[in-house]
């Protein structure tokens, strides 16, 4: 076993987990509080990446591009909520699936029209393109460390926001009993719009941070969306803490499995077969885990209290 590789892969897994958490946090808030199944959340992630790429191109600066992309995403999220989704909160989940599936088609096509069918690259600034020595002789890309740090800071901020501020209190109140909160004078509609906007910003942040590692292209949201759904279901819908634990878990399993399962399979299978089956099996591992958790604990690992 190559311990240095394992360490690197664990860090990569943590980094994927952080991205998943940013995506899942918004999803689980929207799902848990508004009871809205938002399949289009992945599209918002994609739009974040496209916004950042465009703004970075205009300003010639990665950081400025990222900083401009976030308010743009907030506006987009509010627009989507007001125009398309507001009427769907009280509806059947199926209506929501239909509408947000329609939004996916819309955003993918929009991106294809505006930015073209080819993938885009978001180049990193020089100061992030270096690597840090984790241990003597073990370099690790600084950018990936930056993702982990930013993600952890945002996770901490989110926790503080939800459990220690007035807005967070209103969010929790809206989640546990929307009529009662409304009767006490809380503007539920405004609150929901804000929560959706917050979720969009988090998704866009994940998208723009993933952009330099991946290619910015249409459909980039769909693959990660399903992983994010797996995360919130495993973590317990509506629970930010659950989302965090599950996201890191899924990130680690996916990345480490991808790196080592092929090697493990090579012990039993022909080289080429193991090469193909390894990644497929590690992707399956996630769904097996999810099915097992749901079969044993149908409410997820950390179901929110009071419901």
């Amino acid at each position: 076993m190559d311990w240095i590789l394992l360490l690197e892969q664990c860090l990569n897994g943590l980094q994927l987990g952080i991205l998943l958490f940013l995506l899942a946090a918004g999803l689980t808030l929207v799902f848990g509080i508004m009871d809205l199944v938002n399949l289009a959340h992945g599209s918002l992630y994609m739009m974040g990446a496209y916004f950042a790429t465009t703004f970075a191109g205009w300003t010639d600066s990665f950081l400025l591009g990222a900083l401009l992309a976030l308010p743009a995403a907030l506006l987009l999220g509010i627009l989507v909520e007001v125009v398309a989704l507001r009427t769907l909160y009280s509806r059947d989940h199926l209506d929501q699936v239909l509408a947000t599936f329609g939004l996916i088609l819309f955003f993918n096509e929009l991106a294809r029209i505006v930015w073209g069918p080819a993938g885009l690259d978001l180049p990193l600034p020089a100061f992030l393109e270096t690597s840090v020595e984790l241990l003597p002789g073990v370099p690790y890309p600084a950018y990936r460390i930056a993702i982990i740090v930013v993600g952890l800071v945002v996770a901490g901020g989110l926790y503080a926001l939800v459990s220690h501020t007035r807005v967070g209190m209103l969010i929790r109140a809206g989640a546990s009993n929307r009529e009662m909160a409304g009767a006490l004078g809380v503007d539920i509609q405004l609150l929901y719009t804000l929560v959706f906007g917050l979720g969009t910003v988090l998704a866009a942040l994940a998208g723009l941070m993933a952009a330099p590692i991946l290619t910015v292209q249409t459909g980039m949201g769909e693959t990660i969306l399903i992983l994010a759904f797996v995360v919130i279901v495993i973590g317990g819908i509506g629970s930010i803490r659950g989302a965090f634990v599950a996201a890191v878990l899924i990130g680690l399993i996916d990345t480490v499995g991808r790196a080592f399962l092929a090697d493990l399979l090579r012990l039993f299978l022909a080289n080429q077969t193991a090469e193909t089956a390894g990644p497929a099996m590690s992707s399956m591992l996630i769904y097996i885990l999810m099915a097992a958790i749901l079969a044993i604990r149908p409410q997820g690992l950390f179901p929110p209290r009071g419901r």
Partner: peptide, 23 residues
């Protein structure tokens, strides 16, 4: 409810990846 939607989705994706793994 939603958990049913998600668990069937998970199984569907599992079979999808079986297909992807069929070298």
């Amino acid at each position: 409810g939603v958990y049913f939607i998600m668990i069937t989705l998970a199984f569907g994706q599992m079979l999808y990846f079986v297909g992807v793994g069929l070298e």
